[in-house]
Computed example of a mutant assay.
Amino acid sequence: MIKVTCAVIIKNGLILAVQRNATQSNPLKWEFPGGKIENGESETDCLLREIQEELEIKVKLDQRLTPVQCNYERNPIELIPYLVTHLSGAIQLQEHIDFKWLLPEELESMDWADADLPVVQEVLNLTSENLIERRV
């Protein structure tokens, strides 16, 4: 099973979604940014590296959320999400084709990659309990 991290990036009460390009697996699906953990790399180091490489922004990791296991056709993955605060920088997409800053109530309207769907639901639960608003 491939371990993959992802960041639920929050800025001014909005949550970042990024769109995969047409040549990647899960083409044109929306996801939370992140990537594969390399050998000898911690989850947090991986996530900070991936966000810098993919988006060129600085973030602060706040809280680990519930990992998700997903059996994609080629490889099963364990997606390890974190709530993350945007600190600085303007997004410069390196791998994705689009991004959107969404209100929590807009999250369900996006066409998410399967592994990200449970993360969306957890984020919505945290939002309904006012646990995310305190972070922004």
Rank of each mutant, 00 (worst) to 15 (best):
2 I>L: 15
2 I>R: 15
2 I>F: 11
5 T>Y: 01
7 A>C: 00
7 A>H: 03
8 V>A: 06
10 I>F: 02
11 K>A: 09
11 K>E: 05
11 K>N: 14
14 L>S: 12
14 L>W: 06
15 I>P: 01
16 L>M: 04
17 A>D: 04
17 A>S: 05
18 V>C: 04
19 Q>L: 00
21 N>W: 08
23 T>L: 12
24 Q>H: 13
24 Q>F: 12
27 P>N: 04
27 P>T: 03
28 L>W: 10
28 L>F: 07
28 L>G: 00
28 L>S: 07
28 L>M: 13
29 K>M: 07
29 K>A: 09
30 W>V: 02
31 E>C: 09
32 F>V: 00
33 P>I: 03
33 P>R: 04
34 G>D: 01
34 G>V: 01
36 K>R: 14
37 I>E: 07
38 E>W: 09
39 N>F: 11
39 N>E: 15
40 G>P: 03
41 E>C: 04
42 S>G: 01
43 E>W: 08
43 E>A: 06
47 L>Q: 03
47 L>M: 08
48 L>Q: 10
48 L>D: 14
48 L>N: 13
49 R>M: 01
50 E>R: 13
51 I>P: 04
51 I>C: 00
51 I>G: 01
52 Q>T: 05
54 E>H: 12
54 E>C: 05
54 E>W: 05
55 L>H: 08
56 E>Q: 14
56 E>F: 10
59 V>R: 01
62 D>M: 14
63 Q>V: 10
63 Q>K: 15
64 R>A: 08
68 V>Q: 05
70 C>T: 09
70 C>I: 09
72 Y>A: 09
72 Y>S: 06
75 N>P: 02
76 P>H: 11
76 P>Y: 08
76 P>W: 10
78 E>W: 04
78 E>K: 12
79 L>A: 06
79 L>H: 05
83 L>V: 12
83 L>R: 02
83 L>I: 10
84 V>I: 08
86 H>M: 08
86 H>D: 09
86 H>K: 11
89 G>A: 02
90 A>I: 10
90 A>C: 11
91 I>S: 05
93 L>C: 07
95 E>F: 13
95 E>I: 11
97 I>F: 06
99 F>L: 03
99 F>G: 04
99 F>N: 09
100 K>S: 10
102 L>H: 04
102 L>C: 15
102 L>E: 02
105 E>M: 06
106 E>I: 01
106 E>Q: 15
107 L>E: 03
108 E>A: 13
109 S>G: 07
110 M>D: 05
111 D>M: 06
111 D>C: 06
113 A>I: 08
114 D>R: 13
114 D>F: 05
116 D>A: 15
117 L>R: 15
118 P>F: 02
120 V>T: 07
121 Q>A: 08
121 Q>V: 10
121 Q>I: 07
121 Q>F: 09
124 L>H: 03
124 L>P: 03
125 N>Y: 11
127 T>L: 09
127 T>I: 10
127 T>E: 15
127 T>M: 11
128 S>F: 10
129 E>Q: 14
130 N>S: 12
131 L>Q: 15
133 E>R: 12
133 E>G: 10
133 E>D: 13
135 R>S: 13
135 R>D: 11
136 V>S: 15
136 V>G: 12
136 V>H: 13
